[in-house]
Structures are given as C-alpha cells and as structure tokens.
C-alpha cells in the first residue's frame, strides 16, 4: 500500500492533465464545439464524426488550404533545421573533445548558454538584430555597399523561388503545370521553399539548440573508452577512418536520441512563430502548432483545432518511426 501512497499524487496529476486531455482531444476532434459556449448547455456542440478531418485533409477549401500550407511550412522547417543542427552539434562536440584543445569548459559553457534563455527572449533579440535597418543588415552593408536590404522578418518569397528567379525561372515559366493545385496549394508554392522569414526563424532555432545537443554528443563521446581509439591508432587507422568507422557508429544511439528530440521539438515550433511573425507574412510561417492555436483561440473552432492537433501527433509519430529506420535507432538500443 505504501507504493500506492507514494506514487498516486504524481500519477493523478499525469493522468488528469496528460492522459485525460489526450482522450479529450480525440473526442473533441469529432465535434464542432466553438470553445466559447459552456459545455453544460445541451446545444454546446454536435457530434460531427470525421467531418473535421475530412475538411482538413480531403475537402478542398480554406481549411484544407490552411492545413496543407502549415504542413508544407512545418516540413520545410523540420527538414531544414534537424539535419543542420544535428551535424553542427556533432561536429562541434568532436572538435571540443579533441585532446589538443584547451579551454573545453569555456566552449561548453558558451555553446550551452543560449539554451538557458527563454524562447521569447531569443525571438525578441533576433527581431531586433534582423529588423530591416538592424545590425545584421548594417553589418552586411558595411561589407557590401551595394547590398539591397533584405526584410528578413516580412519577406514571404520562398528561398527556392528566389534562387530560381536568378536563373530567370519564374512562376509563369512552368505554365499551367506550376499553377496546378494539389490539396488547394499550387505546385509552384509547394516547391518554392521556406520563405525568407521562415529561414530567419530556422536560423534562430538552430542557433539556440545546437548548444544543448552538443553537450549531449560530448557526453557520449567522453563515454567512448580511450583504448578503442588507441587500438585503432596502433592499427594504423587514419583520423578520417577513426571518425567514420568508430566515432559515428558508437554515437548512433545518441544521434538517434538527438534526431528524435529535434523532430519532436521542431514539429511543434510555436513560441518563435507567435512572437516574431504570428504565422505571416502571407501565411508562410504558419506552422501546424500555430494553426492549432489560431483555429482554437482566434477562429473559435475547437473541433477543427483538436483534429489538427491529432493529425500533428500522428505525423510526429510516423516521422519518429521513419527516422528510427534511417539512423538505425531500432538496432542501437
């Protein structure tokens, strides 16, 4: 009985505020509740079955357009941030772990520091630095006087769109094909890449997280026994061979963990979007998490919002499984 007494306070909290809400999310995703009408009233909501899911995923219209816009933006965000931050964090950790390096503690502290700060603070600092006459633009202009200021925080053009534009390829070059809509979004828009503003937020996110991830990699590296390296060195392995044949495979469980953390975190990106762009300009930074918030609390559509959240949950789940395959996380444990 002592066991129950010890565990029940924590378990009740987790049950009421994590497990019950998960079930409630599923339930409300099947209703059309607006979030305002008190639930005690009999006409507060109707049970609409899978209609919310249908309007998000299948039925062309504004809901579908919003959802697939947010999906496109979020996937660009995730695929841009996760590989870059993982590789950077791993490289930094390998560098900091070198025997010839002095001041390991200093570097570890410095890289970790940004992650102790609030996401809102980091977002505000970036807004200040990247504003159109901010320090970033001033810095670039002092090096390249001909530089035309980029409005980092309000440029809705996709970066691939801009890149192709340099080669004279535009929205019209693809003719009808580019304008063909898949899930209420034109093919050109699907392929135009994250917007400049989204790119800025991606840089912000990478900048904040590499420190924590570096510390995780560093801990794993320090757990590799020195004898392993000595043996390889004695056998005449080159530095590159040691890195590829020893370090990377031994880091596999850590890499799996870092990528999983990265996926779960980036798929839910919200704070930075809320503070910096509120989904704009032109919905190019509208992420799924922000759409959940907007549908629920701005448009007063709790049913749709709950359905969006459930779809996000499934997407994260599937991506985690796929990456388990790719990084070999299933073999690592």
């Amino acid at each position: 009985m002592a066991g129950m007494a010890f565990i029940s306070p924590a378990f009740i909290i987790l049950f009421v505020f994590l497990i019950v809400p998960m079930i409630a999310a599923l339930y409300f995703s099947l209703t059309n509740w607006n979030g305002v009408t008190p639930l005690t009233r009999s006409d507060a909501y109707e049970f609409v079955g899978l209609e919310n899911y249908q309007r998000l995923l299948l039925q062309s219209g504004t809901r579908q357009e919003a959802f697939f816009t947010s999906l496109k933006n979020t996937v660009y965000f995730v695929l841009g941030v996760v590989p870059v931050q993982t590789l950077l964090a791993m490289s930094l950790a390998v560098l900091v772990n070198q025997r010839w390096l002095k001041g390991k503690g200093f570097f570890r502290t410095t890289f970790y520091f940004p992650s102790i700060s609030s996401s809102v603070v980091i977002s505000l600092i970036f807004m200040w630095m990247f504003n159109s006459d901010g320090i970033v633009n001033q810095g670039i202009r002092s090096i390249f006087p001909a530089y035309q200021s980029v409005t980092w925080l309000s440029d809705s053009n996709g970066i691939l769109h801009n890149l192709l534009g340099l080669f004279g390829v535009t929205r019209d070059s693809l003719g009808e094909f580019g304008r063909t809509e898949i899930a209420s979004i034109s093919i050109w828009d699907w392929l135009s890449g994250p917007s400049v503003t989204m790119l800025t937020i991606m840089i912000l996110n990478t900048w904040t997280t590499i420190g924590t991830l570096m510390v995780v990699f560093l801990a794993a590296l320090q757990n590799i026994p020195a004898q392993v390296y000595e043996a390889a060195y004695v056998d005449g392995a080159t530095t590159m061979q040691i890195f590829r044949k020893i370090t990377v495979p031994l880091l596999r469980p850590t890499t799996f963990f870092v990528v999983t953390l990265g996926l779960i975190g980036t798929f839910q990106v919200f704070d930075q979007i809320y503070v910096i762009s509120s989904g704009g300009p032109a919905d190019t930074t509208l992420t799924i998490a922000y759409l959940v918030y907007r549908s629920g609390f701005k448009d007063q559509r709790m049913g749709i919002a709950a359905a969006t959240a459930i779809v996000l949950f499934l997407i994260i789940f599937v991506f985690t499984l796929i990456q388990r395959r790719i990084t070999g996380g299933d073999r690592a444990a």
């Binding site: 809400p21 799924i288 959940v292 918030y293 959240a309 459930i310 949950f313």
Partner: peptide
C-alpha cells in the same frame, strides 16, 4: 501495477505538448 504505471508514465513523455493545448484548456 508497478510496471504498468511506469510504462504509462514513460508513455506520457511521447505526447507532444501542442496536442494537449486544446483539451487542457477545456479541462
């Protein structure tokens, strides 16, 4: 129920916070 409770607790770590946004507000 020791082990089941532990599994459930570990399982809750996998629930993304954003999913809880709406229902937690309701509760």
């Amino acid at each position: 129920g020791n082990r089941i409770i532990f599994t459930i607790i570990l399982g809750t770590m996998m629930i993304p916070g954003v999913v809880l946004l709406i229902p937690r507000f309701i509760i």
